[in-house]
Amino acid sequence: MLVWQETRELKQDVYRLTYQFPKSEVYALTSQLRRAVISVGLNIAEGAGRGTVKDYIHFLYK
């Protein structure tokens, strides 16, 4: 779960950084970066809830 904890810190860093982006990027680059960083943590959590190591690894590579 150390990697999952690191993704939470990464999410905070991305949000902090994207607040500094120009307003014209709110619906483009900012949104895309935020969704991507959230997806990383969700994939790790979902994979960890699977029954097999093979399934877990599949979610890590998504």
Rank of each mutant, 00 (worst) to 15 (best):
M1Q: 09
L2M: 13
L2D: 14
V3K: 12
V3P: 02
V3N: 07
W4K: 12
E6R: 15
R8H: 11
E9W: 05
E9F: 07
L10E: 07
K11G: 04
Q12P: 00
Q12I: 11
D13F: 10
V14L: 10
V14I: 15
V14C: 03
R16Q: 12
R16A: 14
L17M: 14
Q20W: 01
Q20I: 04
F21N: 04
F21R: 02
P22G: 01
P22R: 07
K23A: 07
K23S: 05
E25A: 03
Y27K: 01
A28D: 05
A28C: 04
L29E: 04
T30V: 01
T30Q: 01
S31N: 12
S31Y: 02
Q32S: 09
Q32N: 06
Q32L: 08
L33Q: 03
L33T: 02
V37N: 02
V37W: 01
I38V: 15
I38T: 12
I38A: 06
S39Y: 05
S39Q: 08
L42K: 09
L42R: 08
L42T: 12
I44T: 02
I44C: 02
I44S: 00
A45P: 03
G47M: 06
A48M: 12
R50P: 04
T52A: 08
T52D: 09
V53T: 13
K54G: 09
Y56R: 13
Y56M: 13
I57M: 14
I57Y: 14
H58G: 08
H58C: 09
F59N: 06
L60R: 10
Y61A: 12
Y61H: 13
K62F: 12
